[in-house]
Design a protein around this nucleic acid. Structure first.
Length: 488
RNA sequence: GGCGGGUUGGCGGAGAGGUUACGCAGCGGAUUGCAAAUCCGUGAAGACCGGUUCGAUUCCGGUACCCGCCUCCA
């Protein structure tokens, strides 16, 4: 079996991954707060942990992995949006408007992430569905002396957990010296954070032993991870910005509530996203959502490809140039396969992905190296001399190995190739006409009609390939069927 | 102030203590009516200063510069 190695934030080392139970490998990743469309940065952990999910399924079996990613649907920004709608005249109670808003956002999130080729996790718990578990965990922490109620709030007693700060490498005293903690009169210690807070009539709330209120952000993940994965599980992932305080607080809560469990054994953090060398922010005017890119005509696979060009622990830069390169490469892959209907429609069952691709991924998700290898596989099957020497059966095997390897990285190359093929069929008539013009031109030496049609085709994003063996039209990245209609 | 990450050829981006990454762009060639696509070949690097070593871009220390987090922003 392939040994997966992962950089564990907890130990700051690359370690061999050994699951607690190889029949059920368990991973939790912090999901989005569903108040608005996902921006491009939100896509990074989704894609990174999707690759890990696919790798785990490849190594341990598709039915032996449980992947959980939550939706945070209790949040002040959601409340604000619901309130805005109510004031604007939308019918319904505040609770109904909140539910309406989060449902919309979750549907958008699913649509966007599906387009990026991310598999849906096995469980996607919504915080509002697990309030009972959060209340129970909070009560348990009070009973064990790790939390206290004060002024309608419940606060976690940070000083009661000796290992607090270990994950992020901070000492409590350093943090206090940094002095940007919220000081509230009811806190025993400025570092203490909220497990439960009271709600006004204008805010969503649930009944609890401490009055009507709502859970703090950190307890959500601790409670849901416990309910769905147990006291000890294998991997916890998320963006680096969540390492402190969110993950630190999760650990403190879970370790104190379940002292016999180990909570997550491997912590993985992805680095942040930049745009053209700068942090994406509204003030710089370079802020955009996944949907914005898709609407501009950047395909989901291209976005995914650009993300995988950079290792997950390095800051990633989104640039137009990278998107162009990714688009070219994916187009090459699809072109290579589209002429081989036999492998597109045939079974894949017995084919295994290329071992170098798997090994690259197993080495702390080296997606960049894996991608380079898949590129090589594509170049190999695209009429390289060594490939052409192979018997037909071996050629098909090489084709299939490429397909399965690309799909392990989440690129649906068969679908892309089938799409190309379909587009290509719509070009059959024009291809015949161009061939006729060319045949005539060879004798008349007058190429003007050939060149006119060729230019029009290129303008419509069609690649024109002419050789002794004939004429071939292939849809390119900027293929525009509307411009073709005029030619027909 | 505290904590952490980075610096590789024109660009993107890997691995390895000594042997070609790879891709894009460039250059040369094959092919082509001209092209495109494809194939073949090719130049170009390791921020700076020390140390360890027979040998370091790769290990260790320092300097400079860049970046992130510490603010429910992923």
């Amino acid at each position: 079996m392939v040994t997966i190695r992962l950089t564990n934030s907890k130990t700051r080392k690359k370690e061999d991954f050994v699951p607690i139970n190889d029949q059920n490998v368990r991973m939790y990743v912090c999901g989005p707060t569903v108040y608005d469309r996902a921006h491009l940065g939100n896509a990074r952990p989704v894609i990174v942990f999707d690759v890990l999910n696919r790798l785990l399924r490849h190594v341990y079996g598709a039915n032996h992995v449980t992947y959980v990613r939550n939706f945070t649907d209790v949040d002040d920004k959601i409340n604000a949006e619901a309130l805005r709608r109510q004031k604007a005249g939308s019918p319904g109670t505040l609770e109904e408007l909140i539910f309406e808003r989060t449902n919309e956002t979750i549907a958008q999130y699913h649509a966007d992430m599906d387009t990026l080729g991310a598999m849906r996790p096995d469980h996607e718990p919504r915080a509002t569905e697990w309030i009972g578990a959060m209340v129970a965990m909070t009560a348990d922490l009070i009973a064990k002396g790790h939390a206290y109620a004060a002024a309608g709030h419940v606060l976690f007693r940070v000083r009661s957990y000796a290992d607090y700060g270990k994950l992020s490498g901070r000492s409590i005293d350093d943090m206090i010296a940094g002095a940007r903690v919220e000081v509230a009169p009811f806190k025993e210690d400025p570092m203490d954070f909220v497990l439960w807070k009271p709600s006004t009539d204008r805010e969503p709330g649930w009944d609890s032993p401490w009055g009507r209120g709502r859970p703090g952000w950190h307890i959500e993940c601790s409670a849901m991870a416990h309910e769905l994965l147990g006291e000890s599980f294998d991997i916890h992932g998320g963006g680096l910005d969540l390492q402190f305080p969110h993950h630190e607080n999760e650990i403190a809560q879970s370790a104190c509530a379940h002292p016999h469990g180990s909570f997550a054994r491997y912590w993985l953090h992805n680095e942040m996203l930049q745009v053209e060398g700068k942090k994406m922010s509204k003030s710089l005017g370079n802020f955009f959502t996944v949907r914005d890119l898709l609407d501009q005509g950047v395909p989901g696979e291209v976005i995914r490809f650009v993300f995988l060009m950079t290792h997950y622990r390095s800051p990633m830069d989104w640039t137009a140039e990278k998107a162009r390169q990714a688009e070219d490469e994916l187009s090459f892959w699809a072109n290579t396969l589209q002429s081989r209907p036999d492998v597109l429609d045939g079974p894949l069952a017995s084919t295994t992905p290329d071992s170098e691709v798997v090994n690259a991924l197993a080495d702390d998700l080296n997606t960049s190296l894996a991608l380079a290898r898949v590129k090589n596989l594509a170049r190999f099957i695209d009429n390289s001399p060594d490939y052409l020497k192979l018997p037909e059966v071996a050629q098909s095997q090489a084709d299939l190995r490429f397909i399965v390897s690309a799909e392990l990285l989440g690129f649906p190359v068969r679908k892309l190739a089938a799409m190309k093929r379909h587009q290509g069929m719509s070009l059959a008539g024009l291809q015949r006409r161009l061939a006729e013009f060319r045949t005539a031109a060879v004798t008349s030496k007058d190429y003007s009609a050939v060149d006119a049609l060729k230019s029009a085709l290129i303008a419509a994003g069609v690649e024109v390939r002419m050789s002794k063996s004939g004429v071939e039209l292939v849809p390119g990245p900027n293929f525009d069927s509307a411009k073709l209609e005029a030619l027909k």
